[in-house]
Structures are given as structure tokens and as C-alpha cells.
Design a protein around this nucleic acid. Structure first.
Length: 256
DNA sequence: ATGGTTGCGTAGCAA
């Protein structure tokens, strides 16, 4: 069973790349962030034709999260507030696929340390922690995946000096992420890769990918039973290269 | 370099 997370930065703009990638990697489960469209505007038909069931919690222009799977998707939960409050940013969707409990999140970016959205980000992570603790059983195989917009430590940063206490790298953000992880999650990527220099996002504006200037901010966090069954985690750099890529690369885990 | 590019939607915001 292959489980992936990918911030596609618009499912419409990325459709050709997404279809190519689904064909090439054939992941069983995909958690997408930044779909950036309402359900009726999303190109689900070609994705379904590629063999995937799709569940979505989307809005126009911003945010939006979806789960695609080659197996039956059950127990879908949209948002942390029931999914029906009109002003809720659509950043969380959860579902079950076979014995996996999936939680897909798109964490607020925060803009810069000290900005209003920075404090929204910390509050979002606190709310996420409480919601997961209330609704999920850590004896189960849980995969909490998505764009967390936070590096765990300086191994995840191409230039730690330049990024010191900057957005995506600040101590309060890392603490907020560790508070979520402390519920009983493990950073699955670090089970297999202990060294630095592995990134999932590169800034369009500075041509970061070509220059090797990235951050590892997309994560697959697993409960102990899920981690035990996890045999491999890799970042698909090929999906970040070439024509009209997302600014994020997918992360793919193989579970027994 | 308080820049740069991308996406949405068609101005300006978010990332």
C-alpha cells in the first residue's frame, strides 16, 4: 500500500502533471492540498477514469484538501467543525481506507513571524491537536499527512542561518508541530533518512529548485502501528521538475 | 535586493 501527500497548488492547473504522476507511481492513496476550487469545478472525471475515488473539501481560490484512493473511501469527515460553517477555511479532511485512518491537513502558512496569520497558524495547530486527540485512537494505524508549512529542525533547511527564526522555521512553530506529534505520531521520513538535504518545497520566486534551495515542510506522520508497517518513504523529485510543476514535491510511503 | 513567480480571476491576495 502506497500512501502519498502532495500540495498540488491548484488541481486544475496541475491536472496533466497529476495524471502523469498517478500513472507513473500508481499510489493507492493520495492526500492533496491546495486544490483551489469548489467540488463542481474540480476535474474529478479524468482522475476517476485513472482509477481513483475522490473525496474533497474545497473552496474557490484558496486552500482545499482532497483524498484520492484506488480502494473504497469511508467515514469521510470534512473540517474540524463539521464542514458546514461557511467561513471555515477548508484545510482538513479525514477518511478511512481499509485499516488506515487518514488525516489530510493544509496548515496555514503564517506569512511571517509575528503577523496575524502567524498566530492563526499556531492556533490552528493547537485546534488540530485537540481535534485529533478527541477523535482518533492511537492503537489504530493513523497517517496524518499534508503541508504543515513547518520544518522539524535545521536538517530540513537548505540554509539554516538565513532561515533562523524565520517563518516555517521559528521555534514556536516547531514547538506547535511537536505538540501535535507528541500525541503519538512519528515523522515517517526520519525512520529511513537521518541526514539533511531532503526537501519538499522550493520557492518559485527565487528559482529555488534549480538552485537546491528547499525546505522539508510536507510530512507523513504516523501512529506507532502505522510506522511499524512502513517500509519506505521517499520524496518524488521528478514531480517537481519539468513543465508547470507545483512548488511542492510529493512524499510517498510504502506500508506493508 | 522587503525583490522574485505562480494561481486565481481579472485586482490584488496568498503563498
Amino acid at each position: 500500500m502506497q500512501v502519498a501527500t502532495w500540495n498540488v497548488n491548484s488541481v486544475r492547473a496541475r491536472l496533466p502533471r497529476l495524471l502523469d504522476w498517478l500513472e507513473r507511481r500508481k499510489p493507492d492513496v493520495v492526500m492533496l492540498q491546495e486544490t483551489k476550487c469548489l467540488a463542481e469545478a474540480c476535474p474529478w472525471e479524468p482522475i476517476q477514469d485513472a482509477g481513483y475515488q475522490c473525496v474533497h473539501f474545497g473552496q474557490t481560490t484558496y486552500n482545499g484538501v482532497a483524498i484520492l484512493a484506488r480502494r473504497r473511501i469511508e467515514d469521510v469527515r470534512r473540517g474540524m467543525q463539521g464542514g458546514d460553517s461557511p467561513d471555515e477555511e477548508r484545510r482538513v479532511i479525514a477518511a478511512t481506507v481499509e485499516d488506515l485512518l487518514l488525516i489530510n491537513v493544509y496548515v496555514i502558512n503564517g506569512q511571517e513571524v509575528g503577523a496575524p496569520r502567524y498566530f492563526d497558524k499556531l492556533a490552528f495547530l493547537s485546534e488540530l491537536r485537540g481535534w485529533i486527540r478527541k477523535h482518533f485512537d492511537f492503537r489504530e494505524k493513523i497517517v496524518l499527512a499534508g503541508d504543515f508549512n513547518i520544518t522539524f529542525d535545521d536538517r530540513d533547511v537548505h540554509d539554516p542561518k538565513a532561515w533562523h527564526e524565520k517563518i516555517l522555521c521559528s521555534t514556536p512553530e516547531r514547538h506547535a508541530l511537536e505538540e501535535v506529534t507528541s500525541l503519538g505520531f512519528h515523522d515517517a521520513f526520519r525512520k529511513f533518512h537521518k541526514d539533511g538535504g531532503h526537501y519538499t518545497w522550493w520557492d518559485f520566486r527565487t528559482n529555488g529548485f534549480k538552485r537546491g534551495q528547499g525546505l522539508r515542510i510536507d510530512h507523513l506522520l504516523m501512529s506507532e502501528p502505522a510506522l511499524q508497517s512502513c517500509e519506505k518513504v521517499e520524496i518524488d523529485l521528478e514531480a517537481r521538475d519539468g513543465e508547470k510543476p507545483s512548488d511542492h514535491a510529493p512524499v510517498i510511503a510504502t506500508l506493508a
